[in-house]
């Protein structure tokens, strides 16, 4: 039998559910914008921006974009907890499709829905005073897909073992929330105390956000300024995140194989 039809159908299901659920679709676009407008404007008033060589929106936008894409991908794959709760997971697991194909279909589906969200949000870029070009759009899409893919795989890795929905909320609070705060999306990690900087080095999301910042701001800010906003150079950030994605894919597929 064609095993790829298994990957395809799980990918298709993710997209279908995302696009059909108009409320989810709307909030996935609206919430980041809300963040950008209210939270961004609010924070702007506190930060002593006069001394900084960049506009606050330029700093804030790539972080929020990466973050919403990451949350989208994570929550899509972590929905296997609900699939388990409502019994649907069993239907997939008992099918003759190999487990690793199932996990891969789910990861790719989650990454694709996040890509749709990311593409729509990328179109906001020119309205924030950031220089925009086709190169930035497609480069940004590529990085967004990578971030979404890595986070989707992480979602599978974290939830494959969870049998109860209560454990899921604990996981969300203990792993995802610190990851978000330590990623440099809300404030430049470089200016933080030493212990926070060293913690953020172990956070994969940091490198994802670094990469996206490098791509989106490449036409707007000089390299030296972007260096202040990121922890690593573009190439090393990208490579570290790709490495993370590969490792987490292998781990999550292994874990998913033993799922019961």
């Amino acid at each position: 039998m064609n095993k790829f039809s298994g990957i395809y159908i799980l990918w298709y299901r993710e997209i279908l559910i995302y696009l059909r659920n108009s409320l989810k679709f709307f909030t996935s676009i609206f919430l980041p914008l809300l963040f950008l407008v209210f939270f961004g404007t609010g924070l702007k008033t506190i930060f002593p921006l006069v001394s900084l060589p960049y506009d606050f929106a330029e700093f804030f936008f790539p972080g929020i974009l990466a973050l919403s894409v990451a949350t989208m991908a994570l929550s899509s794959t972590m929905s296997i907890v609900w699939d388990r709760e409502f019994g649907f997971l069993k239907e997939i697991l008992v099918s003759p499709v190999p487990r690793s194909y199932i996990a891969l279909g789910k990861i790719l589906g989650a990454a694709s829905t996040a890509l749709i969200e990311g593409a729509l949000l990328l179109l906001v870029t020119p309205y924030l005073g950031i220089n925009f070009s086709l190169k930035i759009f497609f480069g940004g899409l590529a990085v967004i897909f990578l971030i979404a893919y890595g986070m989707a795989a992480l979602g599978i890795f974290l939830t494959a073992r969870i049998k109860r929905t209560e454990s899921f909320s604990i996981l969300l609070q203990l792993i995802i929330t610190p990851m978000v705060f330590l990623s440099g999306a809300f404030f430049p990690i470089n200016n933080s105390p030493h212990w926070m900087v060293s913690l953020s080095k172990y956070n994969p999301l940091t490198y994802g956000i670094n990469s996206l910042r490098w791509v989106i701001l490449s036409h707007t800010l000089p390299t030296s300024t972007i260096n202040q906003l990121t922890t690593n150079s573009f190439i090393s950030s990208l490579l570290i995140f790709i490495l993370f994605s590969i490792i987490i894919t292998i781990l999550s597929l292994q874990l998913f194989k033993r799922l019961t």
Binding site: M1, N2, K3, S5, G6, Y8, I9, R13, L16, I17, R20, N21, D83, F86, G87, F88, L89, K90, E91, I92, S95, P96, V97
Partner: peptide, 23 residues
């Protein structure tokens, strides 16, 4: 014993999903 349908999808789509899973 328990229901294992996908609540988000229609009856037809549930069947299609199953068909694809079984090649």
């Amino acid at each position: 014993q328990e229901i294992t349908l996908d609540n988000h999808l229609t009856a037809e789509e549930n069947l299609f999903l199953h068909a694809m899973l079984y090649g």
